[in-house]
Design a binder for these strands. Sequence first.
DNA 1: AATGTATATGCATTTTAATATATATTTGCA
DNA 2: TGCAAATATATATTAAAATGCATATACATT
Lengths: 121, 121
Amino acid sequence: MSKTIVLIAKNIKRLREVKKLSQKEICAGSGVPQGQYSRIENGKVEPSVSTLEKLAKVFEVSIAEFFKSSDVNDLLNLPLLEKIKMIDKLGKEEKQALFKMIDIAIVNKRMKDNLQNLIDQ
Amino acid sequence: MSKTIVLIAKNIKRLREVKKLSQKEICAGSGVPQGQYSRIENGKVEPSVSTLEKLAKVFEVSIAEFFKSSDVNDLLNLPLLEKIKMIDKLGKEEKQALFKMIDIAIVNKRMKDNLQNLIDQ
DNA sequence: AATGTATATGCATTTTAATATATATTTGCA
DNA sequence: TGCAAATATATATTAAAATGCATATACATT
């Protein structure tokens, strides 16, 4: 039982529960047969990308959402962790200043990426 | 040719180029045969989750990375929930400006609707 | 307990990715 | 240009998901 399949399974089940929908409804909206959907929610199969695509549509999320982990242990392996820990030790003002800079960086990066894409097309 | 496959293909190719590695090297590190890897980079196949898992490992990223788009059109088409999440990441000023614009839009719409009602009567 | 609804499982068939292998094609460079 | 490495493609085989369908099991409501 792969870690990733379990992760996908949990995320999909959680999303369905958040929306308070039955499997039947998800299946009607996505075209995925109920039997197969059940197997996916229970991590019995490795759903294909096209299946995930259909499900992402009814859940109104990006497929990336299915792969996001909220498990601390997974985050522990990220190289970023050390940095985050250090940020956490900073004072209130330093932290706020840092976060603002991060935000600006993100926005700028996204704008740059988008511009680049437009140029490339 | 599904949009998602192309997205995955582009992301994987980009990641490899960033790392300046050959397909051969990626394949040695991941266990994915070179032929198959080539097909993936060219959007000829829909890679399975377990294949993506292997690749994510050598690229040192989360699988979610493969599904992220920096295309403006895709950002515009993101499901509402995703958009809200992105808004949430914006800086204070950007957020306030955005909310003001949304308010104005709503007010305008309401005025238009009311006018229409008066006309219809 | 009985009934209806939701979810899980079983099974045969179809479809498609993964693989191994070989080979063709492109690309970079001396 | 010509060679070598990198990348793309071809084919046959294997493995696993998708599907349709049937049915079993769990869950709730009266």
